[in-house]
Design a protein around this nucleic acid. Sequence first.
DNA 1: TATACAATGAAACGGTTT
DNA 2: AAACCGTTTCATTGTATA
Length: 539
Amino acid sequence: MHSQGSSSRNQYDWDSDDDLEVFGMPQESNVHSVEESGSTCSSAKNSKLIHHFLGMGFSVEEVIKAIEEDGEDNEENILETLLTLAAEDAFTSEKDETLSILVNMGYPFKEALIAIDKCGPGADLSDLADFICAAQLEKEIESHLQDRPNRIHDTSLHVHKRSRDHYYNGKKKSRMCRTSQKKPLEIDMEEIELSIPTNGFSIAKGLYPRVVRKIPDKLAGPPYFYYENVAIAPVGVWNKISNFLYGIQPEFVDSKLFCASTRKRGYIHNLPTENRFPLLPIQPLTVQEALPTTRKWWPKWDRRTQLNCLLTSIGAATVTEKIRRDLEECGAETPPPNVQDTVLKLCKKWNLVWVGKNKVATLEPDEYEMLLGFPKDHTRGGGISRTDRYKALGNAFQVDTVAYHLSVLKDQYPNGVNVLSLFSGIGGAEVALHRLGIKLKNVVSAEISEVNRNILRCWWEQTEQRGNLFEVEDVQRVTSEHISHWINRFGGFDLVIGGSPCNNLSGSNRVSRDGLDGEHSSLFYEYYRIVNEVMQAQR
DNA sequence: TATACAATGAAACGGTTT
DNA sequence: AAACCGTTTCATTGTATA
């Protein structure tokens, strides 16, 4: 079992690089340990039990469900329930996998789903394809008869194999020209089994992935890289990202497996996936446990146990007021179904929780911090406004999720890591590594927002980091010279980590969801440029 | 105290994807 | 059917200067 380095937290003992300058780190004694302040877990017994079953390869989601059904005290029953769940899961996995294959073949999602339901998930692919074609033909005939515009094939779902150079021809050409001057990393794309990812969750389900992605030997680190972005991006975006990042298939994970709120994200990395372990303490997975005071007010007819994604802005006060009025007007203890319906829809839309009789409220910034795995007050103070806190947190990593993926580094780097952290934000990657007990030797952090840089620097000081933090404002101004300078100085980076802006990819964006080449999201190409430079220099 | 300007907060704003 | 690392506009509050 892995220990999570809380004992030696303040006494790092790796060889200190005295010749490197240390960025503003007053030796204050005012230390807030992340582990202590972030401790919001369920009962110790529960936590131990969960971990016991996790060790057996079950997912957190399954274990929690089983414990809820059977109670904490009956280990045998829990195991039995888990095995039953696993059997059921095997069924849905098969369905998902079939679905994934069909979509990758170019069939529309909906029609593939219908076909699987009709023919069964175990049916031959050719039979399923026949079924879909028959259905499409039927539709086509029907539409001809009705003389309507006919759009049978959703061509946007077709996967086009294109050369890598194709992607250099977008409107960001000038930016890409600099990149393409250098020869791409020598990797024979034919050797890599290119399984084009969909934008969904059909691939990786559950905490301990059942589908192990193949990472070609040539790409297995170090140096490692870790890329993150929203899972539900416009069609083709993940395909493109994956093609740039050496054809590695993304791992789609929903952070609801690690905390009480949903966060569907895709991760592309070349880290090993064996022997991962979760961050301790394991977070409560239900809202009622994570926010205990809400339990008392939570009505039976609101069946939510987890929250939706934490966004960058919160609901208006008029919404909560409207809900209060509607509920009071109907007077009854349990409101009529139609009222329940409208209230629930609003609650889900704005992630509202129950804080009183007929009273719902938006989440507080410190509740965001807790759910996302940051220490309490991580984004508080230092002249940061409330709106800025929501914005910064809404854009951040879910620390427990990222830490789970990065946990494999702990044994490999007992003396600490050198990290190139791009789009650092409020330092989700740094906090994850720190909470894992992985020492931070040198961290080069690029972050455009001044308030975010302040937050990271404050955290760095408060946790008494012994390593060096180097701040860069703009990733676009990081040159090859910078990179080689850092590599010479640190002896290379062990990890290049970052999630590029999702503004133009996110479904929340009503105005400028323009895809990967959008104003902000095109900074992905900067991530690729820098990762590629590091990969070439260190291999 | 009055004014100009900046910062902050509240509210309204659909469409794509699975 | 349900969800989404968001943007823009406008009103309000805060702050500097006279």
